[in-house]
Simulated scan of single mutants.
Amino acid sequence: MSPPGTIIVIGASAGGVDALRTIVAALPRELDAALFVTLHIGAHKSELPWLLGRIGTLTASHAVDGEEIRAGHVFVAPPDHHMVVEPGRIVLTRGPRENMARPAIDPMFRSAARAYGQDVIGIVLTGGLNDGTAGLIEVKAQGGTTIVQNPANAYGSSMPQSAIDNVVVDHVEEIAALGPLLIRLVAAHHDSGGRAHRNQTSGDAQERGMTGQFTQHKPVAVTCPDCGGALRQSQLGSLTQFTCHIGHVYTIEVMMAAQFLAMERFIEQALRSLGERGELCRVMIDEIRSVDEGAANQWKAAEAEVRDRTAVLQGLLNRRWIHPAINGGVRPAEG
């Protein structure tokens, strides 16, 4: 097993399987690079390595914790784990979700950039919202090459468009052009003497769990949708991020979507509680109707009150909400 000359990290979400298959199908077996792929699959079973392995000449598998990095292989983030790239090896972690996702793209991009610097090629493909933008900023900052699928023809335009809006992107290409482009870039990097050996320190503490930075920033008056903890606000170039002391990370766009979903859940929980109260009121009416008509009437009034308040909450859920566009047309309720 030979170490790769180039580290290629690819992030995708909705529509990503077909896009990834197109790229991998165009790459030759002798490619002097290791590919790392994160697709937003959550904790669901994934057949992505099998799909990628049968479409081209490269081998593919779900990454294994501690596995050695090698050229000519596609390492896929397994379900419910972030894939962290360290010098010479892979680390898997069930650390806090980022942008509501685990596996998330940003930890993979960020760790690869800090471990391999200019030997990294970062690619953001189709998807909603903007996971991958912060990581691509890091790839660029460390001297790597940044590539984005043309959002005009992507299944999900928000992720690539966010990258274009916030990062100095080296290449914006149609999906069919990305395979040939990678072959040229890897060959040029090989000819220049580049070998994917960078920092020989272990990966960032942020990739493994808590950030350790919470006390350095004043908390904002917004709580984490995942754990309810206080959040700190930070700025990464033009990208606004929120991080809680546990380590959950959100861009402002994803934070808007997560907060909206949390608000809807709270309303639904309130509706459930009102339904339970209404049912208990009906039980009480049946229990005491023959004994105390006056008390039964009070329980009837309580049940009517439940119906009135339930109608108010149902109205809140059923009404159309305003979702203003943010940064290049990304809407906070988009998944």
Rank of each mutant, 00 (worst) to 15 (best):
H62K: 05
I137N: 14
L317K: 07
V172N: 03
D80M: 04
A112F: 11
F260L: 09
G15W: 00
A134P: 00
R70L: 06
R331H: 14
E98K: 05
Y155Q: 13
I246A: 08
V139E: 04
E253H: 05
A258I: 10
D131A: 15
G11R: 03
D32E: 15
R272M: 11
R319T: 11
A154Y: 06
D32K: 14
R102W: 02
S111G: 12
I246E: 05
V24I: 05
Y116D: 13
W321A: 11
R289E: 02
E174S: 12
T6E: 06
N297I: 05
Y116P: 06
P79M: 02
Q213W: 12
R195D: 08
A230V: 01
Q241N: 11
A196F: 07
V167N: 06
C224R: 04
F36P: 05
L313M: 02
M1Q: 02
L27S: 11
L181V: 06
E174G: 10
G56S: 03
H82N: 04
D292E: 07
A262W: 03
Y250E: 08
L178V: 13
V64I: 09
D286F: 00
G212K: 02
M83A: 04
H40V: 06
P3M: 15
K140Q: 13
W299Y: 14
G42K: 12
H197R: 11
R319C: 10
D106C: 02
D106R: 01
C224N: 03
I326D: 11
Y250D: 09
G329T: 14
T211C: 05
A221P: 01
E276L: 08
G144E: 15
V306G: 09
A152K: 06
M1H: 09
Q269S: 10
V168L: 13
A63L: 01
M108A: 06
D292W: 04
E268T: 12
A152N: 06
A113E: 07
D165G: 03
I90Q: 00
L317R: 07
R54F: 15
H171N: 10
G72Q: 15
F260V: 11
A325I: 02
D191P: 02
I90C: 03
G56D: 02
E98Q: 15
R289T: 03
N99R: 06
L51A: 10
M284V: 01
C244D: 03
V312L: 12
